[in-house]
């Protein structure tokens, strides 16, 4: 899809969607949203960028291989659950801290880090699939080079 319109719009659209995906992710704790849907939005942002500029430029832009991102998300989610072993509560118990930064109380929790893990797993897995489908036929399917 090598049209001027798409190529002009794609960068700002991608940036906007990525920002929105983070917003949806963080909003998800108390309102509709969350890691899964946020991850889907981010993956579609990357897919649009891939349609406009080709798969190699997406791979360059995200620096890490999508599967590595998914792996990191899975690890983050697992560790969020395992943190409770230190505090003597059962696996996956939500743990909260309330640091005050610039006089604003900021509630942070393992629930959120778990959700960020989910976000990364979805971004990684769906982007991996999307890039494989967008790849020019005949080129290296895995982008290993």
């Amino acid at each position: 899809m090598n049209t001027l319109i798409l190529r002009t719009v794609a960068p700002s659209l991608t940036a906007l969607m990525l920002l929105f995906s983070v917003f949806v992710l963080l909003r998800g704790h108390n309102e509709p949203g969350g890691g899964f849907i946020g991850g889907l939005i981010a993956a579609s942002a990357l897919a649009i960028y891939g349609i406009a500029f080709g798969v190699p430029s997406v791979r360059r832009a995200i620096r890490f291989h999508p599967m590595a991102i998914a792996g990191f998300g899975l690890l983050l989610a697992t560790l969020s659950g395992l943190l409770s072993i230190v505090l003597g509560v059962p696996f996956m118990t939500g743990l909260w801290i309330y640091p005050v930064i610039f006089e604003v109380e900021l509630p942070l929790s393992t629930v959120m880090s778990f959700d960020i893990g989910v976000y990364l797993v979805v971004v990684g897995a769906i982007t991996s699939i999307a890039l494989a489908l967008e790849q020019e036929p005949g080129s290296d399917a895995e982008g290993e080079n």
Partner: peptide
């Protein structure tokens, strides 16, 4: 097992 699977995915190359 899940954690190790995740680590191995990160160092997949």
């Amino acid at each position: 097992m899940i954690g190790l699977g995740a680590v191995l995915m990160m160092v997949r190359k």
